[in-house]
Amino acid sequence: MTTPMPGGPTESKPLHFIWICDCSGSMKGEKISVLNEAIKQTLPEMKTTAVNNPFATIFVRAIKFSSGAEWINTDPVPLEKYSWFDLEADGVTDLGKALSMVADEMKIPPMPAKRAIAPVLVLLSDGQPTDNFDKGLKKLLDEPWGKKAVRIAIGIGSDADFDVLNKFINNAEIPPFRADNATDLINYIRWASTTLIKDVTERKSDGSKRDGITLPPPPDSAPLDTAPW
């Protein structure tokens, strides 16, 4: 006779992945359209990456910011059930508000104290914040999981404020990416949702106690003759 296993149900570790998307008026047209398509197109690859690591469960959320900020889905959705809803662009660039709302989700609770892989926060923006960005960023970095999160920033076009994106990353060894055209943006989104996810889940779920700050190599930029935004 087999004795029932003590302790109750077990689970793999959660990894929270959050898209932080600029939906200000300057993103209108090709930029927001490429962003929507790129995330939708890479979702199947992201799901395949997740399936290959049974010791991590990926939960995805997205928050958009323009005049104010709003969660696309407030509750974390398991990656296998996640689908993307097209974003529309209009308004100003209230990035500080968005970071403040992300900070609320990095608190303990709702985050567990110990049992999670460092969250991945991916910021996509083409402009300069119009609200109190520093206040929102401070709130995020004051939360242990906000500080511990792997923070990636993709600047869309030459008007993006790379000082702001650097401050968001808060790590001199990880520069923001610069997507000068649609090809770059697609490549960076694919990298964040596949290569980076694979690296973070494998690195953090294998019993690692202290992980280095290096990231997997990013994709190459598109050829110079690629049409800019």
């Binding site: 104290a113 999670a116 242990p144 999981w145 511990k148 953090k204 106690k209 992980d211």
Partner: peptide, 8 residues
Amino acid sequence: DRFVGTET
């Protein structure tokens, strides 16, 4: 409680 995640 000084540490989060796998820090130790």
